[in-house]
């Protein structure tokens, strides 16, 4: 059987931290006496990823996404569990492993602030020991795909956030990694720049067959790029599969968005379905998939309807539902 590129078994990570009472007095007290607390950032994570897959890694803040990514890239040692990436255990930090993957964190940059991006690229060439020929080819390809040819010689501090992110990506990909971890690569970018980054990632994944694991809070990123999503919450995996299946399974209702010609009362609508939004002349109803046509017909007949619009549940809502359910512990 073919070995998957990334294989995680029973991964756990527990942090120790200390409780501090609020205020200066509290800080003084905690100098002498403090309460030790343990948090299980990652409780039990198992999954494997095949070569060339583009996987979305979702979860609310503090779910354990970044901690998992940091263990996959060898920054952190786990409390227990096994991880195999490209045949290596990441936290052994073998140079042969480190030369084959890349980690991009949207909130942290590696480019030299006062110098043109090209200088950082040349630095990475020496650090990663990229042969001149490969470097030239890689640079040409990436700068064309990302359309950054013209900004490579401008000091990084003069670039816009979007341009900077493109250069960050180029810097991370010059050594042609086989595995790429992206932690919120589009954070803080405007809509156009986000779209540019997405288009690039999609093309890059298709052309290079690079295995990519992406975390993002923007559902557009996930929907456009990832066939498969892994959702974590409170340190556990709560879903692993295709995005479409997730929607089909959890979204068993449709949305009826109705505008009325005269003001209505909330109680008049309750018999048709769950009222999720209400204004005197406007309402949104959740209606079971099996019956939505019938109910829509009834509403049209019985109420003073100006307009009615039938809509699918958005992915955001599905995900929000899953987070809400898993918080209470039952899936």
């Amino acid at each position: 059987m073919k070995q998957p590129i990334i294989d995680i078994q029973n991964l756990r990570k527990t942090y120790t931290y200390y409780k501090k009472p609020p205020g200066l007095l509290g800080s003084l007290k905690s100098l002498f006496h403090r309460e030790k607390l343990l948090t299980e950032a990652v409780k039990e994570v198992n999954f494997s990823i095949e070569q060339g897959e583009f996987v979305g890694f979702l979860g609310p803040n503090g779910a354990g996404k970044t901690t998992t990514l940091k263990m996959l890239s060898g920054i952190l040692y786990p409390t227990s569990g096994k991880v195999n990436v490209l045949g290596f255990t990441p936290w052994d930090r073998k140079p042969e492993f480190q030369k084959q993957f890349s980690l991009v964190m949207g909130q942290k940059n590696q480019l030299w602030w006062d110098l043109p991006a090209m200088e950082t690229f040349l630095l990475n060439q020496t650090i990663y020991e990229i042969p001149e020929k490969v470097f030239r080819a890689s640079l040409k390809e990436l700068s064309e795909l990302l359309e950054i040819q013209d900004i490579l010689t401008i000091p990084v501090r003069k670039l816009s956030l979007g341009q900077r992110m493109k250069c960050e990506l180029a810097a991370a990909l010059l050594h042609q990694p086989k595995v790429l971890f992206l932690d919120e690569p589009t954070i803080g970018l405007d809509v156009t720049s986000q779209q540019n980054i997405r288009t690039f990632l999609k093309k890059y994944n298709e052309q290079k067959k690079t295995t990519i694991l992406l975390t993002s809070h923007y559902m557009d990123d996930i929907m456009e790029l990832c066939k498969r999503v892994i959702i974590v919450n409170l340190g556990r995996i709560v879903y692993d599969g295709s995005l479409q299946e997730l929607i089909d399974k959890h979204a068993d209702y449709k949305l009826l968005k109705i505008t009325f010609t005269q003001e209505m009362k909330r109680n008049d609508l309750k018999k048709y379905g769950k009222v999720s939004e209400f204004a005197p002349k406007r309402a949104v109803l959740h209606v079971a998939k099996a019956q939505y046509k019938k109910i829509a017909a009834h509403i049209l007949e019985e109420l003073p309807v100006d307009d009615i619009f039938i809509d699918e549940v958005s992915v955001e809502e599905v995900i929000r539902d899953i987070f809400a359910v898993t918080k209470t512990g039952t899936v």
Binding site: S73, G74, R93, K99, I127
Partner: peptide
């Protein structure tokens, strides 16, 4: 600020 993380993933 976490810039040490970057130094742990490079082949040096």
């Amino acid at each position: 600020i976490g810039s040490f993380d970057r130094m742990l993933v490079r082949p040096m």
